[in-house]
Every structure is written in structure tokens, then in C-alpha cells.
Design a protein around this nucleic acid. Structure first.
Length: 429
RNA sequence: GUGGGUGUAGCUUAGCAGCCAAAGCGCCUCGCUGUGGCCGAGGAGAUCAUGGGUGCAAAUCCCAUCACUCACCCCA
């Protein structure tokens, strides 16, 4: 047969190999522990949603909706999209299942892959995992602060506390933000010739985005632009002040960044981002979140205040690796290997296998290998403490050989009660 | 979408016009009939990304395509 063309993974999609598993499990485990201790409950939403959910929820003018969605028509003719983010789907679920009637706030978290059709590059994938948390039904500043506190706890527990920075800002609300936007438009209006081309488009679509442009010429102009704080109404101002005070009380350090705007339309009041802190200035965004008091209503529910965040898992793992942070082993190393010789022994070894598993000492073995030599080589590579050797003779006698892999000392023991004998041995060492 | 870089065994790479394309790691076998690590011997594994071109001669030079990668935009 002619050689077939190998099939590669789809652009921007990655395999998570067994060797990477410990890092993933470590982060998942820590996040789950902390979130559940803080009373968040796990929710899982489908990968596929109606396209309109994101058009409405995330916002038509956003890059995500405009050019990054995996959208297609089903055989039945529905317009569906592979979810690009988690907040809109979780909000949809909140409304759909009448969670309004549960005791508020409803605190939910998710660990799921998202899909964005972007140009892949380092720390950017088309399938990316996010750990997210959302709170519905509570508008108090303490909710914002708790969410931030919890996300920082997660970073702390995985060992990244000293490698991250929290940036925070307030975007105002329905009442005061329009005033600010108007002021910005007035400010930029006669400076459009001086800003970069993309910024000219932002002027029409979303003036706020002009603030976080990193082009030098735009930066200079933005530096003198009106500041959001001067436009926040009293309620927003107090809210923001309280959040900051709460954080100070919790000994959380933060940087207020008036140019922090965020790309999704649904945010109101508090917005924040967590960035890696790099000496080389090569920092990446690890997480982002904020308050979104109008989203539930926008998606057809009753007016419900809400806030949340999401962590990029791949990016967090990348930082973990870069900082050479030790990832604790969740699965313990194998301690015992079973080598078998001959048919009778092989048959008997299956039972042994099960006996050991039940007693909590998983046995390693290589049943497909026949020679003792190759089996011992495997045992050595696995780094086990003991190897049990069950040969034809032993199988007939009802005994088994126990080999200490360090000293190479062997002893023949009765097969009966071998599990207990080994338990004892392992304890001694 | 726009620009740069790279494509040689499973992995890391050497070779950068001239005999059948190398090495290290990994994998497998053997070195006693039932005993690992070290050592020794051997083996499997590569249409040198693909297609075209220039040369007596191409993995090596040129062009195109594809893939990967990095950057911009934007984001986690």
C-alpha cells in the first residue's frame, strides 16, 4: 500500500500529553479546592451555543464576535458557534434554569475549553482552556472584592503570587459612562489625523478602546485624555472606592490603571486583569474579569447584577514552567513491579495484580514481555523499590521471590499473605 | 488579514552542491539455560515538508505551495 499522508492536528489546536498532565491537574485541583471552599459550584455548559448568544452577550462590535468565532450552520439550519468565552453561556444557563429563584448570590465556576479563530502564536491558541467564576444576584462591592481575592488565592496557591500584578479600573455604568465616552470623543475628534489607523476605527466603534492602544503616538495623546474618574457618578465612585479599600484591608496590592478597558462590551464598573510580572518586559495577560450588571437583562432575564473572571490555563502553565515552579506529584510513583515467567505464572499474576490494587498498593507489570531480563529492565526504569518474581517453579510451589532493587537481595516468600508482607516492608523503608 | 523565521529518523541536531544521508538520546535484540542499572555488539526507524526549476551532479542553489513558529491587531 502506498504510504498514506499523515494527518496533523488542526491549526491552533494542541494535544495535552501525559507528560503535561501533572501541571494541568495541579492547577485544576487547586482551583477547584479554593473555589469550592468559597462556595462556588461547578457548572458545565455545551461547547456549542446559538450564535446570537455571543452576538448579543459579548457584543457585535468586539473582535471576538467580528472575526474570531467558529460559527457554522447545522444540518437543521441553525446558526451555532463554538463558545469563544464562558460568561455568556453561564449567564444563559442562569436565566434558562431560573436560578433567580435560588438563594442569591448564585456562585458558579467552570473549567472548559474555549474556541477562537485567531492567528496562533506563543501563548495564543484556537482552543484554549479557561477556569472561570461568576456570581449572580449581588451588586455589592464586596462581591467584586471577593472574586478578586479568590482569583489571587488561586495564583498564590500554585506558587505564582510573586510573579503577577493585578490591574484594576472602573468603567462606570449606564448613567455615567456615556458622558465619559462623549468627553473622549470630543477630545479625540480633532486629533484623529495623529493617531494610528486602527484607532480611527475605534473612534467610531468604541472610543474606550483608543485608551489602551500601545502605539507611541496614540499613547502620548491618550495620556492627556479625560480620565474616567472625573466622570464616575457618586454611586460608581463609591463602589470603586470600596472595592479598593476592601482589597487594601485584605492586603492585596493592585495598580489602578485608568486606561484598562477590556474588549468585551458587557463590563460595567469594576474591571481587572492579572498580568505576569516579567523582568524582561515580556509580560502576558493571565486572567481578566469584571462586573457586568446588564448582561442578564441583555440576554433576556430580569435585571440581575453579576460579576466574574476567567483564567487562561495554558498561559498560567507557561508561566509556571518559565518560573520553574515545582509541580507536586499527585500520582505517587510505583513501588512494586511484578515479573512473571511462564504461562502458569502469567495466569496467576492477574489475580495478584487485583489483590494488590485492592489493598492500595498498585502493582506495575509488563505482561506482554516474556523474558525476565526485559521485565527487570522495565522495573529498573520505573524506579520501583521491590520486584516480585513469579516463575514457573514458584507458581507450582506457592511461593514468590521478592527482590530488593537497591541491594539486589532476594528472598523467597510464601505467596499467601504476600500483600501484607510487602505492606510491612514498604513501611520499614 | 499583514510581516519575519524555520522545515533532515520518535526527540535534539550535524551535513549547506559530489560516493548508497550522519550523530546523540530513545526504542528493540544479543552478550548463561530464570535476573535490572554500567559496559560491549547489533538492529529497526528518514519519499532530507511537498511540487517544480537550474546544474554532469541538489538535503544543500532558485521559485511556488503547505505546515509550524514568532510578531502586529486583539485577547486568556
Amino acid at each position: 500500500m502506498a504510504r498514506q499522508k499523515p494527518i496533523q492536528s488542526v491549526k491552533g489546536m494542541h494535544d495535552i500529553l501525559p507528560q503535561d498532565r501533572p501541571a494541568w491537574d495541579f492547577i485544576f485541583k487547586k482551583a477547584k479546592e479554593i473555589l469550592e471552599e468559597y462556595d462556588y459550584e461547578r457548572i458545565e455548559t455545551p461547547v456549542l451555543e446559538e450564535t446570537e448568544l455571543f452576538e448579543r452577550g459579548v457584543g457585535e462590535g468586539t473582535d471576538i464576535v467580528e472575526k474570531e468565532m467558529y460559527s457554522f450552520k447545522t444540518r437543521g439550519g441553525n446558526d451555532v458557534t463554538l463558545r469563544p468565552e464562558g460568561t455568556a453561556p453561564v449567564t444563559r444557563a442562569y436565566i434558562e434554569h431560573g436560578m433567580k429563584s435560588l438563594p442569591q448570590p448564585v456562585k458558579l465556576y467552570y473549567i472548559e475549553p474555549m474556541f477562537r479563530h485567531e492567528q496562533p502564536q506563543s501563548n495564543r491558541y484556537r482552543q484554549l482552556w479557561q477556569i472561570g467564576a461568576e456570581q449572580f444576584g449581588e451588586g455589592s462591592f464586596s462581591t467584586d472584592a471577593e472574586l478578586i481575592f479568590v482569583i489571587l488565592k488561586i495564583f498564590e496557591e500554585i506558587g505564582l503570587k510573586n510573579h503577577i500584578t493585578l490591574k484594576i479600573n472602573s468603567l462606570g455604568d449606564k448613567i455615567c459612562r456615556p458622558d465619559y465616552k462623549k468627553a473622549l470623543k470630543d477630545y479625540y475628534k480633532n486629533k484623529l489625523k495623529k493617531v494610528c489607523v486602527p484607532c480611527r476605527n475605534k473612534f467610531k466603534k468604541n472610543v474606550l478602546r483608543m485608551l489602551d492602544c500601545i502605539q507611541t503616538e496614540c499613547k502620548e495623546i491618550s495620556a492627556k485624555a479625560p480620565q474616567i474618574f472625573d466622570f464616575l457618578d457618586d454611586e460608581c465612585k463609591t463602589h470603586f472606592k470600596n472595592v479598593l479599600e476592601f482589597l487594601e484591608e485584605a492586603q492585596v496590592s493592585y495598580i489602578v490603571n485608568p486606561y484598562l478597558v477590556r474588549g468585551l462590551d458587557y463590563y460595567t464598573r469594576t474591571v481587572f486583569e492579572i498580568w505576569s510580572e516579567e523582568e524582561d518586559g515580556d509580560s502576558i495577560q493571565l486572567a481578566g474579569g469584571g462586573r457586568y450588571d446588564y448582561l442578564v437583562e441583555l440576554l433576556g432575564g430580569q435585571q440581575t447584577e453579576a460579576a466574574g473572571w476567567a483564567i487562561g490555563v495554558e498561559r498560567t502553565i507557561a508561566l509556571l514552567k518559565k518560573k520553574e515552579i515545582k509541580i507536586p506529584k499527585i500520582k505517587q510513583d510505583p513501588k512494586i513491579f511484578l515479573a512473571q515467567l511462564g504461562d502458569l505464572a502469567k495466569k496467576r499474576s492477574l489475580m495478584l495484580f487485583e489483590e494488590f490494587r485492592k489493598s492500595g498498593i498498585p502493582l506495575k507489570a509488563s505482561l506482554t514481555r516474556d523474558s525476565i531480563k526485559s521485565q527487570l529492565r522495565i522495573a529498573n526504569r520505573l524506579g520501583v523499590r521491590f520486584t516480585l518474581i513469579l516463575g514457573q517453579r514458584e507458581a507450582l510451589d506457592g511461593t514468590i521471590i521478592l527482590r530488593d532493587m537497591e541491594s539486589s537481595v532476594q528472598e523467597t516468600l510464601p505467596l499467601k499473605g504476600i500483600v501484607e508482607a510487602l505492606k510491612k516492608k514498604l513501611k520499614e523503608k
